[in-house]
Write a protein that binds this DNA or RNA. Structure first.
Lengths: 345, 345
DNA sequence: GTGAAAGCGCTAACAA
DNA sequence: TTGTTAGCGCTTTCAC
């Protein structure tokens, strides 16, 4: 709706600086072919007049788009809101604007969002959140992003390996291992896992880490109950209910993300099962509220804000021959939700 | 960076449908001057080909921009991430994209973000978060938004009254009153307030509600300690420390938002002061984690997600003669962080 | 009701 | 080094 409005155009700046349109454009874009003297005069005038380029004209004419598209599961999920915070921070420093959309963990919807961003001609696309184990499910998204890259768009993903683009990869497997080792070290043997949707690679990877730790102790994941449910607080509640009903002797629950851990804690609280006395609980991610839960949640910290920063920083670099991959650190944070296993009454 | 690319243009659709560019444009824009027959054929073809208009060309040519700008304090603050979630949800339904930027509760930075959004020619701007009591502080933002509206832009704000635009207003004063009445009803008389920055209208309004409740009991706010600090978790920690040090006989603390309440709880936990036995604590907002805290936080629920939805819905309606104002409901949610005052040992 | 043509403000060839 | 000019893809007068 915003009518053109009598805004300042580049011609105005050019005229005022006594140069041609082209020269003004070059000067402000910092391209060479302009004497430093003229360039600085143009910049000066542009500053004084408070000129801001019309991004639509600029992009239409083939210039760089200064907006980045970010696809997350949901911004109001703390894991993703922290990532978004990191992306926005870097964007702000570079004068870029961030368009955020929701995938809702639905591959079809995600694809639609990616297409929308491409149609909007954003210059950079960042996709955050787990990938899908079935390659066919993300084939279309992968194709769309490749096309987009081929046409000069920049892409970075967070937490998914199979898209063939620059990626920031949380250490899911190692994190899962560390978590299981922590519980094993406390003497727990009857461990259950509250896992998210099994179609998600993040779930599979974290689970693989847990399995590896168990094997290290001569145990087998097959002996441990793994309950798949939604990768959310509600899913955690449901999983905990099933675990308690079907495996009443469980002494520790590994939730594969903090949201699920919060659901697990909620169920335990409702059933008056003391944590960590009767049940140890661990999460994954270390969202900022993890420390404020009752009890403080033992979890694996992922640097979400940094991950967002890293992803955008990567995308801002010139394309590399082959996709870059940066893996994030991970760190076990022991709080009050875990304790040594107690002998059965 | 995205090079033009061999994308589908409106001419292609027009050609395929056997009409002129102008007719195709009219048909897709739903403007009249096209026979229904032709119009539907054009839409049909456009669908089949998967045509998506280039928003840069469209906007440059004077059409409507389909992006909405949202200014929040920080997306990774739960209060704002829930609002953002609501805005994105509606935007998604209408095929709009949302650009999010941070004000950081800094009026200067906020102004810069607003100007940036205007320069980007977004069609709608939504500003969420407390206003400032000093009108001069937001005079520039107000002026920028007025100009923008005059040129056809649509604006809605959430939680600020003095910008002269459509607004969604949380019931801050009533909420503050309800909170104080709740504590008063439990017998508390030595109440302290952990308040945010006093320059914020939200802080002032909530405080006014608290004061009103006290007056209703023949008490005076002047008798109660009000500690101003940052409107964040850290601010809550600091405020609680001062309250404990300077007013050791306090039996209840009113934190003016949930973030501060979380800080207050954290300090109390660190000092091993039992909640609610020795100290009752209340928050404000009911962010989604409030229920999972230790103990569950008594607070006033604000429908953040709805507030985001309402704001965008308002901005999507045609302009009204005078600014619209919709106030949100509020609801006291009693959990486990409050209890009757106990006789002093 | 429909089409032809003139821009919107900018970038990037191409000249000079 | 600088200027001239032809578009980018769309909307919107203005003719027909």
């Amino acid at each position: 709706m915003p009518k053109p409005g009598p805004r300042l155009r580049l011609v105005d700046v050019a005229e005022r600086a006594g140069v041609s349109l082209a020269t003004a454009s070059r000067a402000l874009a910092g391209r060479d072919g302009v004497s430093e003297e003229v360039a600085s005069r143009v910049r000066q005038v542009s500053q004084e007049l408070g000129y801001v380029a019309n991004p639509y004209a600029r992009t239409l004419a083939g210039g760089a788009s200064s907006t980045v598209g970010l696809v997350v599961h949901q911004v109001d999920d703390p894991y993703f809101s922290e990532i978004a915070g990191g992306v926005i921070q870097i964007a702000d420093e570079r004068g870029l604007l961030v368009q955020i959309c929701h995938s809702g963990r639905d591959p079809g919807h995600e694809l639609r969002q990616i297409r929308h961003l491409i149609a909007q001609r954003v210059g950079i696309i960042i996709v955050a959140g787990s990938g899908y184990r079935d390659a066919r499910v993300e084939a279309d998204a992968k194709a769309a992003l490749s096309d987009y890259q081929r046409q000069g768009g920049r892409v970075a993903v967070i937490g998914r390996h199979s898209l063939g683009v620059d990626a920031v990869l949380p250490d899911n497997e190692a994190g899962g291992r560390v978590l299981a080792e922590h519980l094993l070290g406390l003497g727990h043997r009857r461990i259950a896992v509250a896992a998210g949707d099994e179609a998600l690679t993040t779930v599979a990877d974290r689970l693989a880490g847990v399995a590896a730790a168990l094997r290290g102790q001569g145990l087998d994941l097959a002996d441990l109950p793994v309950v798949h449910s939604a990768f959310t607080r509600e899913g955690g509640r449901a999983a905990a209910e099933r675990i308690l009903a079907e495996h009443p002797r469980t002494t520790a629950i590994i939730a594969l993300n903090d949201a699920m851990a919060m659901g697990v804690l909620s169920t335990l609280r409702a059933q008056r099962i003391a944590v960590p006395e009767r049940m140890s609980v661990v999460g994954f991610d270390d969202v900022s509220v993890a420390a404020d839960l009752a009890p403080g949640l033992t979890t694996v910290r992922l640097p979400m804000t940094d991950m967002g920063r890293m992803a955008l920083a990567m995308a801002l670099k010139p394309v590399s021959a082959r996709p870059r991959r940066r893996s994030t650190g991970h760190q076990l944070v022991v709080r009050d939700s875990t304790a040594p296993v107690t002998p059965r009454a």
